[in-house]
Design a protein around this nucleic acid. Sequence first.
DNA 1: CTGAAAGCGCTTACAG
DNA 2: CTGAAAGCGCTTACAG
Lengths: 349, 349
Amino acid sequence: MPDRPTSRDVARLAGVSRTTVSLVLNNVPDVHISPETRQRVLEAARQLNYYPDASARRLVSGKTSTIALVWHRGPDRTYRDAFLPGLLQGATHAARRYGYYVLFRPIESDEPDDAWVELARGRHTDGLILSGPRSDDTALLDLHREGFPLVLHGQLPGADIPSVDVDNERGAMIAVRHLLALGHRRIGMVTNAPLAYTASRQRLEGYRRALEEAGIPFDEALVRYGNFDEESGRQAMEALLALAEPPTAVFVASDMVAIGALRALREQGRRVPEDMAVVGFDDIATSRYLIPALTTVHVPAFGLGWSAAELLIRIIEGDTPNETPVRLETELVVRESCGARSGDAGKRG
Amino acid sequence: MPDRPTSRDVARLAGVSRTTVSLVLNNVPDVHISPETRQRVLEAARQLNYYPDASARRLVSGKTSTIALVWHRGPDRTYRDAFLPGLLQGATHAARRYGYYVLFRPIESDEPDDAWVELARGRHTDGLILSGPRSDDTALLDLHREGFPLVLHGQLPGADIPSVDVDNERGAMIAVRHLLALGHRRIGMVTNAPLAYTASRQRLEGYRRALEEAGIPFDEALVRYGNFDEESGRQAMEALLALAEPPTAVFVASDMVAIGALRALREQGRRVPEDMAVVGFDDIATSRYLIPALTTVHVPAFGLGWSAAELLIRIIEGDTPNETPVRLETELVVRESCGARSGDAGKRG
DNA sequence: CTGAAAGCGCTTACAG
DNA sequence: CTGAAAGCGCTTACAG
């Protein structure tokens, strides 16, 4: 790179001081500078192709104008990757509106869970979004206690850290109500993950409440536990099918797991939705292309990213919002796997 | 945030100068500092929970230790999003190895194509990866001429800017050779995009060359043009099926487009692979779950991100690599849509 | 082996 | 309305 022009060069060319250059270029309000001078500065900057040095600006302002998105990899790796484009683009979209940059920081499996704290402590960023918080992350709690701006994507029970997530319980209720409305009475469930995961517990609770609303007793025997992946869904569905009295419909709280469930059904020659109705959760990109196309609960990844970034930036800028935690609504996407489309729901049970 | 400790605080606590603190913490070689002093500094830093301020460091070093990934959105939006997680994680993986951070910068549709130049000119980053370069981007050429470190993901014919991409032509050859090996002689093609796109031209060329190798004349009538999306693939396949003498196999140079092609086949009651063999390109996440599962050419997104970041960092650090352009190999993923699995390829034609 | 001083390129009170 | 000076928090020649 040839020598970069500095504000001194611009000042010299425009015949003013560096102060004036800064005032003009930053459009500082309440300071009157003659239109001619202003024009001369602008012209000089343009002519020299001058852009203020970000590092100097950061140092003097004490702001990085950057937020970080910290991305944990875990057993739910593939599952979460499906949401990365949406989440990230939502976050960058909001960030841009407010003049912030976005640093992407995945925590890889060979790193300690709190490898990201250096970003905060070293002032690489003004705040951060932590996607997939670990409950044993004490560095996280320390930082929050010290007032470092933080927003979680997901939930950390017990900590009062601002967070953004989907309303899992309501999402599950919507899914199960849909099956109920289609006439099903014997509805099974496969969770998205072990119950150690908050989202998993919430989705199960939604299932339970929807049944309760309909006056159907909760039956433990109809619940199986998924573990993020296809194979766990396959096994869960096989177990359900092996029941003396299998359900006529199943709510699978994860599309990825539902893919496995659909496979188990296919392998056993059961037709979907005729022999078994299935509703998923997440609305990953693949779901619309499955055969039958999967009816599922849409999770607004872009909106989550957007909300997280916006909330974070408001915290950074001193606004202390109290509508936390933010819970975005889900939406049922009716496709073919539930039978609502064909008008031919399995009405047994 | 409470007052952050500075190097002065550490120096004071350890009873040394700030120089010594810097020397110790940065592990500057060839400077002998007594083990006791070193220990005292380290202890003081630990005790104060001191992390050097990144902004100050950037300013004094003239380095940001950051690379940016610029992500263009275009008509190929959905298509490209499928590769974002892999590309980004590959890039961050390589960046971390070399001590760099990654800034993610999507260019949204309401922004000028060169909205990213400010990142470079304002010294927000030491270099950048441009994914989806536009050939009319003169700012790009200017920056490259000035010596700003740049790596393209994709290709820009005519410009000698370092780039990383997949070997599209070979990938297409692999796909078509596979169909030839299965006994097909009348093989159609649907491109991934209009021929204005370099990758599209290259994949078509690979198709043509594979046929040539086999002594089969190229027949323009068997080629249709896709446009990134499902619908374009559906129409292309319908056109192919409407031919007086339709092909027995089709190479669709994009999985997304192939999804549409499969749908057209299904709608017309044709069985895949029995009535028509199909091979795709890209290996997007969805392809393995299609019915039949799509045989396709795998594009190593993670490897592309990794290579791009590594090449960029080597350029930043003064290494002028000459193995550019980098072309990664693809790999055929044989699944069900081509008939190789069932041993029952359509052998007519 | 260690310290005082200069300087990275800005912005921002503070004088004029 | 404009300019000289201080300072952000580091690192790095340069003396001692």
